[in-house]
Amino acid sequence: MEKNINITLKVWRQNGAKAKGRFETYKVDNVSTGSSFLEMLDMLNEQLINENKEPVAFDHDCREGICGMCSLYINGRPHGPDDDVTTCQLHMRKFKDGQTITIEPWRSAAFPVIHDLIVDRRAFDKIIAAGGYVSVNTGGVPDANAIAIPKPDADEAMDSASCIGCGACVAACKNGSAMLFVSAKVSQLALLPQGRVEGARRAKAMVAKMDELGFGNCTNTGACEVECPKNISLSNIARLNREFLYAKLQD
């Protein structure tokens, strides 16, 4: 059954990219355990506005785990203490009455903080721009059923394609590596005949861009897979490594 709890929050506040940040402590009372984590933050903000203070800025949009916009580091874990969910899907029933909850932005060199809990993740877009697509223009393509694709391949491609680009993998990684994100896209497209054609070029271009943008190297710690809300598997990284090696051999 749902009940109400009182909690203490330690929240990272930072007034702009260049400002120095600090933790502020707030109390929020009477939070229903049926509320989502972000609804609890809405309550905090309502409280702050009533006190004529500036509310805490955090990224969110769909609030159902699909847009990848929410991005909080809660009690030392990206997307908080529940498994296989994004921050917006986290519910207060995962917390206890009287608990202190620490909330920080993603911490990674490639994702600078913009304001409070909001970071700049445009580096991910740049990686996709470097090659995360099939090079076709609109129109003049064959009939959708012209190429049969084995169901297991299509299903596996779909699993890789479920990445929501949230960046939790980067935030979880001690090296700040984006390998899980990059490998998910490389795998999805490599598994499909449409994407196969450019496979080598894509893998090389995306990895080069990732390195250029200041993401760290992958040392196979596996932290990314644990924290990924969409269960993107490490096997994608293995596939990327194969693709990459193959591309290098072709050079």
Partner: peptide, 17 residues
């Protein structure tokens, strides 16, 4: 047709269609 060409992983049947 366009989406399939882009690599959108639509659900398929066992025959691959």
């Amino acid at each position: 047709d366009q989406c399939v060409a882009q690599g959108v992983p639509f659900a398929r049947e066992y025959g691959g269609l």
